[in-house]
């Protein structure tokens, strides 16, 4: 257990024998600024032209708030469903051996590769009342396509690989020794999983959750096909941005975009802070 993080001090960087900090960080910051921050500054700039009151009028407009609620609500539900299932999938894929495992392992990445529009079309075809799954659910009175439930389905599809692929490498890295030690000390399997394995996985699980959530909030291509897009019911925030652009209302569009940016940035930051905290709390693995 090495932990440089334990040393105190108020300098920007804590001392380390490892070289390349300046180069790595310098390059990272430059690239980040050019590709991400500078263009995003454009959004802020356009929004700023509205002034504070103008921005808040749009951000707190009933329609905007309801679209943001739909986007964040469905994303939260989808990410919350993806965490247990994603961890389970990662666990089964790393720990168990069964026929077809490699194929399943490869297929987890599919949502990354499939263009989101295709995913949307395929999912809508499946879940529409005349689709393979929608047809089974329709007699039970369950409607999926063109309801918020449909949005959740699309977002589960989009988010799953984020959880699995973030958790999986760490799970593979986990040392068997600590599990064996726990078992030797009399812990049953459930206790070992809960007390030894899960804490080690926690940072990765949180990252996976955050990424699945963050990705889901902005998702557009796959959702518009299955959502129904009814204002105040199944209208997502990115669609509202498109609508504002269509009205040649750039300031309105960037204001909604900025509102989304602020909320998701705050969420991501919170989760990254929790993660940093949990890493200090549980230390590094390996």
């Amino acid at each position: 257990m090495t932990s440089i993080g334990l040393a105190g001090g108020w300098r920007i960087k804590q001392p380390s024998v490892i070289p390349g900090f300046g180069l790595a960080l310098g390059f990272t910051l430059t690239y980040l600024s050019l590709i991400i921050l500078l263009p995003l500054a454009g959004v802020v700039w356009r929004t700023a032209s509205l002034g504070w009151s103008g921005f808040w009028a749009i951000a707190l407009d009933e329609r905007t708030v309801s679209a943001l609620k739909t986007s964040f609500g469905t994303s939260l539900v989808a990410a919350a469903i993806n965490v247990p299932f994603g961890v389970l999938v990662a666990w089964v894929l790393t720990r168990y051996r069964f026929p077809g495992r490699r194929i399943l392992d490869a297929i987890v990445d599919l949502p990354f590769a499939l263009p989101t529009a295709v995913a949307g079309i395929a999912l809508t075809a499946l879940y529409a009342p005349n689709g393979w799954i929608g047809g089974l659910l329709a007699p039970l009175g369950i409607k999926v396509a063109y309801t918020p439930l449909g949005i959740v389905i699309a977002l589960i599809f989009i988010g799953l690989p984020f959880v699995v692929r973030t958790v999986q490498p760490v799970m593979e890295e986990l040392s068997r020794e600590s599990e064996e030690a726990a078992a030797t000390l009399g812990a049953n399997r459930w206790q070992t999983v809960r007390r030894v394995i899960l804490p080690g996985l926690m940072p990765a699980i949180l990252t996976g959750f955050a990424l699945a959530l963050a990705r889901a909030v902005g998702e557009y291509g796959s959702v518009i096909f299955i959502a129904g897009n009814i204002p105040y019911v199944s209208e997502i925030a990115p669609l509202l941005i498109v609508i504002r652009l269509q009205e040649f209302n750039y300031a309105g569009a960037t204001a909604v975009a900025a509102a989304m940016l602020i909320v998701s940035f705050a969420m991501l930051l919170a989760i990254n802070l929790i993660q940093a905290w949990s890493r200090r709390r549980y230390g590094y693995g390996g």
Partner: peptide, 30 residues
């Protein structure tokens, strides 16, 4: 390395995930 503002930097790196693709295109249009 351990340095100040690391969580902020990590968050900024995650940001493109949460930026709607619509906005990702829009920023370059702007």
């Amino acid at each position: 390395f351990e340095f100040k503002g690391k969580a902020l930097l990590t968050t900024l790196i995650d940001l493109p995930f949460s930026v709607s693709p619509v906005i990702s295109g829009l920023v370059y249009v702007l």
